[in-house]
Design a protein around this nucleic acid. Structure first.
Lengths: 231, 231
DNA sequence: CGCAGGCTTGGTCACCCGGCCAAGCCTGCC
DNA sequence: GGCAGGCTTGGCCGGGTGACCAAGCCTGCG
């Protein structure tokens, strides 16, 4: 319990710049625990301990456990949006933008902080009242992706598809699910997985001029049949 | 608290055949609650109430809440396996088998009982000790799918791919994620969604003899590049 | 008719959760 | 040098949790 008031370069937890910032420590610890055990199974005491502080100190910054989750999720959307924007940079090619965005999203989900995982997989834990704000921000992120999909579609290099939102759900599903089985240290990095999955996605979605018309006809037939509930 | 001992045809909860079977009622109620609120956020009292019995009665059949989850998950694997087998029936065509299997899986996940959802999305809640058994059964289900994928690959109608397991993860991700956003009563049934997604999947994975060799070359190049971490 | 035992009852128990707070420390500013 | 106030301390509280059980009901069987 004897904690040095002055920063000690030999001790891990105590960081030079004001102990790294208590807020950051809380969200980091909460993210890790929420991801591992889920929101409901995690106690505020555990979060506080992992953040190297007492429960009361945590309460001073966040009035409730729900508030921590809320802050974490808002941060997740913000970081995801920033990561994807940064990854795309000045690239203009609509298909390449999708590939780079997918990479950034998966990289953040697997190797970044845990907030994105919590946002995606602990959505149920967010209390009804707090849902609206996060939902709006999350919607912006999804619309951002829809915009890129529309762009790809408009460029004529994407297969004509009935519902862009459905395509986003499809891609997000494949990518987000990686967090379910991926373990660091495997023989594939998240970026490699993203690229591989992009190859799978692209050759189902990208229209190739050199492809015989027969293929597009068959695709359209499959799509039409799927709407009648039989194939 | 006055509960008729004899089956009354006018009362919903009391069923003719021995009140429908208490075990079934427990697992049904638990599945619904676990899906809606998650395992940790659900109390045994809630489950008992939803199953129309007292907590003590539930305890008579399941020693702990964990046991209920375990039974539910084991049932989920069993039902998924049975549903997919039944859907495939006598069909021999490897590609068609995949399509029908995907349909059955998604139909069960969206409209069937909630156990499959719990198995997939509440995996973290299963205590370490109980994990082994379910993991083995779940592995059989996954191997079953891998077998179908190998078959499709062996038939020469599937695109040559480095890692079948990765393809399964890809497809399962896209399909399982549907449970995240699907709401009954929309303008697409699970089977229609499955067929649409199958169309997306197929035209990225199925090798078409009539397709110009150029496309396969580009696919192979993308795959090779993805393993070097760049495209 | 009587009895055995499967199942339910209604409550109890120890635990520990999330939320809270008054007191005090310690830092940086005046 | 002193003080104000932001932040931490450590413990407290009511409530609700999972687990449990002795007693008894009621059904089906002999």
């Amino acid at each position: 319990m004897t904690k040095p008031a002055l920063p000690s370069p030999l001790e891990g937890p105590t960081q030079p710049a004001g102990q790294e910032d208590a807020d950051e420590r809380i969200l980091k610890a909460a993210g890790k625990l929420f991801r591992e055990k889920g929101f409901a199974a995690t106690t505020v005491r555990e979060i506080a301990a992992a953040a190297n502080m007492l429960p009361g100190s945590l309460h001073y910054r966040y009035a409730s456990k729900d508030d921590v989750l809320l802050a974490l999720m808002n941060r997740a959307v913000k970081r995801a949006m920033a990561a994807v924007r940064a990854a795309i940079g000045e690239v203009r090619d609509p298909i390449e933008k999708l590939r780079l965005g997918l990479r950034a999203h998966l990289e953040l989900l697997c190797n970044g902080d845990d907030s994105l995982y919590v946002l995606l997989f602990d959505w149920r834990s967010l209390p009804q009242g707090a849902r609206e704000g996060v939902e709006r921000e999350r919607g912006r992120y999804e619309s951002f992706w829809d915009g890129m999909l529309y762009e790809a579609h408009g460029s004529g290099r994407a297969r004509p598809v009935l519902d862009v939102e459905l395509v986003r759900h499809f891609g997000f599903g494949a990518i987000n699910w990686v967090a379910t089985w991926y373990r660091p240290g495997g023989d594939r990095t998240p970026s490699q997985i993203a690229d591989t999955f992009f190859a799978y996605l692209a050759f189902g979605l990208i229209h190739e001029p050199s492809r015989p018309a027969d293929l597009d006809t068959r695709f359209a037939a499959l799509m039409a049949a799927s709407l009648k509930g039989q194939g």
